[in-house]
Amino acid sequence: MQFFKKKKVHYPDFWYAYENSFKQKQATELKDVRFVVLDTETTGFDYGEDRMLSIGALALKDNTIAVGEAFEVFLDQYFYHAKNVQIHGILRDERKNRVTELEALQKFLAFVGNSVLVAHHAGFDITMLNCALRRHGMPKLLNKVLDTSTLYKRTLIQSPLLKKKEHYSLDELADKFNITKRDRHTALGDTYITAIAFLKILEKLKKKGKFSVKKLLK
């Protein structure tokens, strides 16, 4: 690690394209902000050992999701936990147009650009992505990140009678907002649930007053 820090490193070209996209200033009106809602399916929860199996992402702008613009990749990974297969249903040898991790990252960075990232329990997905970037010698993601789990907590009323939980699962959000749980535990299916929940949360936050894009993205 020490060795890399001293040396002037050179990143892949697509990284620089990604980095350049941040020269453009973020929009100030909510309807102009491009959000990218994402979810990853992984082999497990260990940042060091576990790997991403698929990335799903949807672009969201002005309350609208373009279906054709959906991002969905399945990765070729050698690391596997049999016990997780029953959750995400992705088998190692299943043929499904797989890409390498590097290709996946390249496509992903091109897709997100300088958009605001949104994920449920975002910390996990972003760290997974950052670990993958580091494996390929790149720095961390530069995007602004929003977590629907914490945003949801902000919509709840302040009442001594309501005991807020530390964490709200995606299932709980789907139940609260009456979003169908079909395709749960596929990256893009979870992304869709997160996206609709995010839109509903935004509406709630707007109604609470004192809402601004600046505050949201702070």
Binding site: G56, L58, I65, V67, G68, A70, E72, R182, D183, T186, L188, G189, Y192
Partner: peptide
């Protein structure tokens, strides 16, 4: 392009 979401729409 087909993906999980477009299939759901269909």
């Amino acid at each position: 392009m087909n993906n999980t979401i477009s299939l759901r729409v269909a």
